[in-house]
């Protein structure tokens, strides 16, 4: 088995996901080569062949061009599997490759089981073991699922690729994340509100609990999207990453993108009406209760201490 690993690069930086690709490939017991549109000044720790095209504003985000270059590398390397991170770069590019290769795509792999791949379904409430029936497959890996214990080392053997611009999508630069009014990354105690709060007025009880615990309040994405809380309160892959001593998740189901932002919390208390909510997988304590009842009582009792 041979894999082609597609590393990610953005705005002058190599993204950390390449180590997960390398580890995944090693777990499969496969040989590998790597592809990157990036820079010679930011090479991954990797001992293998690295096909490298120089990133410029016209080539850095250009899925049509990346597809073309990768197809050329595939013709040379003949891998049985093309591996990408399940990220904004990976899920955009993977189906383009899959169709061009007549390959089945397996999205968001979380585990290798008996040589086949496992993906989540229904907000991680189910897992599907799947198999491609095509000779070559394209897979994307869930962030964090294959993080190696130690970062891979080594210096790649760089093979330069010629990248011309062009293509039917124009990339016009980045827009920085909105300035954060609240720096949750330094908070020691965070109480977060999820969609389970039901209506904006109920955010107050989350704030009150946060105050009673002398912490900050945070929010899951739907609460921010609905404009019940500011963007700077959002915890998760597209929000802030937090590492408090105590994280209280109120009415939050525990989607992977939320977990990614808070799973390094020291102690997690979840309050949820759904006993099977995936947040239970990482919570130290799951209180199965209606937050509208439990949160005010808990706050009152804490204030009386």
């Amino acid at each position: 088995m041979k894999t082609l690993l597609i590393a990610e690069y953005r705005d002058g930086k190599l993204l950390g996901t390449s180590s997960e690709l390398i580890n995944f490939s090693a777990q499969l017991g496969a040989g590998s080569a790597m592809f990157l549109v990036g820079s010679e000044n930011a090479l991954p720790g990797y001992s293998g062949k690295l096909y490298l095209a120089e990133a410029t504003p016209a080539t850095e985000f250009n899925p049509g061009l990346h597809k073309q270059l990768i197809l050329e590398v595939i013709a040379k390397e003949q891998p049985q599997m093309v591996v990408l991170p399940h990220s904004s770069y990976g899920w955009d590019l993977a189906p383009r490759l899959a169709l061009a290769l007549n390959a089945a795509q397996i999205s968001e792999v979380v585990e290798i089981k008996d040589g086949t791949l496992v993906v989540p379904s229904c907000n991680a409430k189910l897992r599907r073991q799947v198999k491609a029936t095509t000779d070559i497959s394209v897979v994307t890996l869930q962030g964090g699922a294959f993080t190696p214990a130690d970062d891979p080392t080594g210096a790649p053997e760089v093979i330069k690729l010629e990248a011309t611009s062009g293509g039917d999508i124009q990339f016009k630069g980045y827009e920085a994340a909105a300035a954060t009014a609240v720096d949750l990354s330094k908070a020691e105690i965070i109480v977060s509100a999820g969609r389970g709060i039901g209506k904006p007025e109920n955010l107050q009880m989350i704030e009150n609990l946060a105050k009673a615990l002398k912490g900050e309040y945070g929010a899951s994405r739907p609460v921010v999207d609905a404009e019940w809380a500011e963007q700077s309160r959002q915890v998760g892959t597209t929000g802030q990453t937090v590492t408090p001593k105590l994280y209280v998740a109120c009415g939050i189901s525990g989607a992977i993108q939320h977990l990614a932002g808070m799973k390094k919390s020291e102690f997690v208390l979840a309050i949820n009406t759904d006993k099977d909510a995936p947040i239970g997988e990482i919570a130290d304590v799951l209180a199965v209760a209606d937050l509208k009842q439990l949160v005010p009582i808990l706050t009152e009792k804490l204030n009386a201490l």
Binding site: A103, A104, Q105, I106, T116, P120, S121, A124, K125, L126, R127, R128, Q129, V130, K131, A132, T133, T134, K275, G280, E281, I282, A283, D284, V285, L286, A287, V288, A289
Partner: peptide
Amino acid sequence: AAILETLQVAPPEKKGGGLILE
């Protein structure tokens, strides 16, 4: 025809040593 085959569907194994309170 589909080119991806589902071999098995199952709930995730409960790893969580977490306490459930009701």
